[in-house]
Design a protein around this nucleic acid. Sequence first.
DNA 1: CGCTCTATTGATAAACCTCAAATACAGTGG
DNA 2: CCACTGTATTTGAGGTTTATCAATAGAGCG
Lengths: 240, 240
Amino acid sequence: MFLSEFTENQPALFQGVEKQHHKKLFATGQRIELGVKENLFQEGECAQKCFLVLSGNLKLTKLSDQGKEIIIRYIGPSEMAAIISVMKEKTYPVTAVAIKPTEIIAWKRDAFRHLMYQYPDIALNMLDMVIDRIGDVQHRYFELSCEMVEQRIARTLIRLSQQAGKNVQDGIYIDMPLTRQDIADFCGTTIYTASRLLNMWQKRGLIQCSRKSLTIMDLLMVIKIAESHGEQLEQNSYSA
Amino acid sequence: MFLSEFTENQPALFQGVEKQHHKKLFATGQRIELGVKENLFQEGECAQKCFLVLSGNLKLTKLSDQGKEIIIRYIGPSEMAAIISVMKEKTYPVTAVAIKPTEIIAWKRDAFRHLMYQYPDIALNMLDMVIDRIGDVQHRYFELSCEMVEQRIARTLIRLSQQAGKNVQDGIYIDMPLTRQDIADFCGTTIYTASRLLNMWQKRGLIQCSRKSLTIMDLLMVIKIAESHGEQLEQNSYSA
DNA sequence: CGCTCTATTGATAAACCTCAAATACAGTGG
DNA sequence: CCACTGTATTTGAGGTTTATCAATAGAGCG
């Protein structure tokens, strides 16, 4: 984790950081238009901020021209977002939605830039983080480009389980409120296809899902599907 | 452009940079496995490098498990690549192919990291650059997710014309050797579909293409296709 | 002028989206 | 606790886009 690492190594530096941030709490469902200058946390004076999630989860989404919502990623505790606000003048249309009560701290653009100038460690940490991000997006680009829906949904489940999975008696429970629409939007398919596949997997005992919960019972099998090179495992997916 | 900006503002700093880089020339078709430690520019001692293109063009690609090639991006003069090598220990499987004779300068991992520590401007410039990159990938992720092949190919042409376009008498000539396969790989379709569409556009006078050259005659119309919300302009694409 | 590699073109089929309709569910107020 | 209502999900049928396959044609090269 970026910040804690940093603060552990150099507690003195964090004093300065501490002074310049703002704490905020968002209720479930609350939306923050990251792209709108005047709207970022409702503080007109200096809206260009980046932030760190302390607790809860945010969903970062973007709306296409045709009204289709795409989920960029989910972020949870210890993850940062909106670094772009710090580096770029121009705004860009991304929305963050709290899917749980979420606590964040934010830095103003100039304060954060100043910090990075003053303490190159911060800049390098940011760079490191942003490069991880590129890896992620690029990987998902690949999946979309090469893989079939079945594999992509499987990967989505794996991804979610890595980020918000909790070991429970009968598998890995994904501790986030997710709709079918969310899952579909996260891997570039439709709610219908997602529904069909999830139900099939449930029948086969791979997962256990209801409206509000999702548990992976057989992770190995899900991984197998994600990594199958497109060939059908067992029966045809769309039959039965 | 990152480096020139930097050198103009602080010529003294560049002296240090100058000393620590390596110049290399690649012939057309030469491949560089960026992911293989021992192979990056054939200098085993310290393979983790990032580089800047001085002249020519490189194609950055990644091979999928199923053998499908995906083009990550093309880079030309003044663009950097492989920053990931500087920030991450782990290697990752990307290949750069020179599609023209290409001259680059490279920095060793440690040298570049040191530079960034010493001169935060460099780190911030890198951060800025990497964030631009995220924007690009993310945008292409969107396109793949929401748009039809026709629009994506149109966007690819626009993108290429922005990067390597030269104004000529009858349009914008794209100054890069591109095969149909390249165009297909760049926007996530097949050579067949790309061929069909390009030929159709040629018949309609939008572009002029042969095996080795590609000229956009009617950029406005290409933009219109790229931004059409999926509805057919004129006849059905696959007929005629 | 054969040989190889790339491009074209037609036919076919697969994957998946779209639409419509039915059903299940969660929350709410009585 | 139950009926009610609005939303989320499921499911089927049909259609579209685009990949795949196969075969041919063309370009460049020694």
